[in-house]
């Protein structure tokens, strides 16, 4: 059974592929709330990806998940360069992993906190329904 690798397409990435054949391959997910491109890779290549990263695994849908964000960025870069969603994209990304080693190491320690206002949930938590015994 083939395995899959999904790349989430946000506004910036959508702009980068605009007008290319890749644009037509963008799939809406969750009713269009998110978009993605999907690479289909043979089993052995999928396993090679899993072997590169300690946390990576196949999920129940057969998708390769929990790879570092910098690897996903690299895969997207290769998609753009090669204008393809074929297995050669994944082969090329795997070959370039040494170039992102430092980024991957950093990612395991710290990720920038999103700049969003959470005061409403802190307010809700001031009066919890469940109290300590």
């Amino acid at each position: 059974m083939a395995k899959f690798f999904g790349v989430v397409i946000d506004e910036t990435r959508l702009k980068a592929i605009k007008g290319t054949p890749l644009e037509e391959k963008v799939e809406p997910i969750f009713g269009g709330a998110l978009k993605r491109l999907v690479l289909e890779v043979p089993d052995d290549l999928g396993q090679k990806v899993i072997d590169q990263f300690t946390k990576a695994r196949f999920d129940a849908r057969g998708f390769i998940e929990e790879t570092p964000a910098s690897f996903k960025r690299l895969v997207f870069k290769k998609i753009l360069e090669m204008k393809s969603l074929g297995p050669e994209v994944m082969e090329a990304a795997l070959a370039e992993i040494p170039s992102i080693k430092d980024d991957i190491a950093k990612e395991d320690k710290e990720l920038p906190v999103p700049d969003i206002d959470i005061s409403d949930v802190l307010e809700l938590q001031k009066n919890p329904a469940q109290k300590p015994a």
Binding site: D10, I29, F63, E65, A69, E107, P114
Partner: peptide
């Protein structure tokens, strides 16, 4: 669209809300 905890962790990791 099927749910996957690891997919969701992946988008959080990429900084996508």
């Amino acid at each position: 669209s099927r749910y996957s905890g690891s997919f969701i962790r992946g988008i959080i990791n990429e900084g996508v809300m």
